[in-house]
């Protein structure tokens, strides 16, 4: 028991020796638990030292590519504290989703929670706010402004390109299996992008905090003249079974050949994800 007592004493020491941080520091060693914040950092020219769930980031977000120097922190809900301590970050970025770990993270470095997704707000606007905030925190204000204005210009360009054309409303989905999709509603990031370029979202139903709803594919018939965009990766066997599904083959958008297959794009991200989606949209639409 004496061992334990000693160790206990050792563990309590850092609480007594916590140093004050200066008022407005410019952070450079940043650990980002959330992928949306991590990609935004890359977008303003800051490479985070560590990111949560890096392996899954590479599989599901892909772009922008995380440099090899970035350390994996393991599960985003439980970022590895021992590793994080040894990496000595000067700022840890989280979103409200990962708030549970805050008290623990705060013992390692100052923690900032930045929410791109908030109830009743436009994620494109909040993503811009978050980008500005990240620019301020890292001293990359100019780069942040540039990222925001480039996206604005890009949106304006696409909007101009599409004006005068009558385009259908779009369902934005990713397949969960061959019978179910995640369909993105009006609090999703990609919905805001659609609206900004003058298009409409075909899904008018409810969506949750993160902007999606889970639905059976037969529920995607409520807007008959709609088109459909789906994002890779496709679940196993889904393409094959969809090809043989009479219901799918007779969905109005399939019959009218208004189905667009998009490569992976992170639906829960920030401005970089929005930019990525916009690029995909631009590449896909002129070929109508």
């Amino acid at each position: 028991m004496r061992h334990l007592g000693l160790a206990l004493l050792l563990a309590l020491l850092p609480h007594l020796a916590m140093a004050d941080t200066p008022a407005e520091p410019r952070y450079s060693r940043i650990a980002a638990i959330d992928w949306g914040l991590a990609e935004t950092l890359l977008g303003i020219g800051v490479t985070p030292i560590a990111v949560g769930g890096l392996e899954n980031y590479r599989r599901w977000v892909g772009e922008p590519v995380m440099p090899d120097s970035v350390q994996d922190l393991g599960l985003r809900t439980e970022p590895n504290l021992e590793l994080l301590t040894q990496l000595k970050p000067d700022l840890i970025l989280i979103t409200p989703q990962f708030e549970a770990a805050r008290p623990w993270l705060e013992k390692i470095a100052p923690v900032k929670s930045l929410a791109i997704y908030r109830p009743d707000s436009n994620p494109l606007l909040t993503a811009a706010e978050v980008t500005r905030e990240l620019g301020r925190l890292t001293g990359h204000e100019a780069e942040a402004e540039r990222l925001i204005s480039e996206l604005d210009q890009h949106i304006a360009a696409v909007r101009a390109q599409l004006s005068g054309r009558t385009l259908p409303p779009f369902y934005l989905v990713s397949f969960i299996d061959d019978r179910h999709v995640r369909v993105f509603g009006d609090s999703s990031l990609f919905h805001s992008v659609l609206v900004r370029v003058g298009l409409r979202n075909a899904w008018t139903g409810e969506d949750n905090y993160w902007g999606f709803n889970q639905a059976g594919i037969e529920q995607l018939t409520e807007t008959p003249d709609a088109a459909l965009i789906y994002f890779a990766p496709m679940p196993l066997n889904a393409e094959r079974t969809l090809a043989r599904s009479m219901l799918w083959q007779n969905m109005p958008f399939v019959r009218a050949q208004r189905v667009y297959a998009f490569p992976p794009a992170w639906q829960f991200g920030g401005l970089m994800s929005a930019e990525h989606f916009l690029r995909l949209l631009q590449e896909a639409l002129p070929h109508d």
Partner: peptide
């Protein structure tokens, strides 16, 4: 594998929904 298995969350709970006669 949280993402790779989201289909399994549904399926393991026994969803009967169908879109063909397979």
């Amino acid at each position: 594998q949280p993402m790779g298995l989201s289909a399994m969350f549904i399926w393991s709970a026994g969803s009967l929904s169908q879109n063909n006669w397979d």
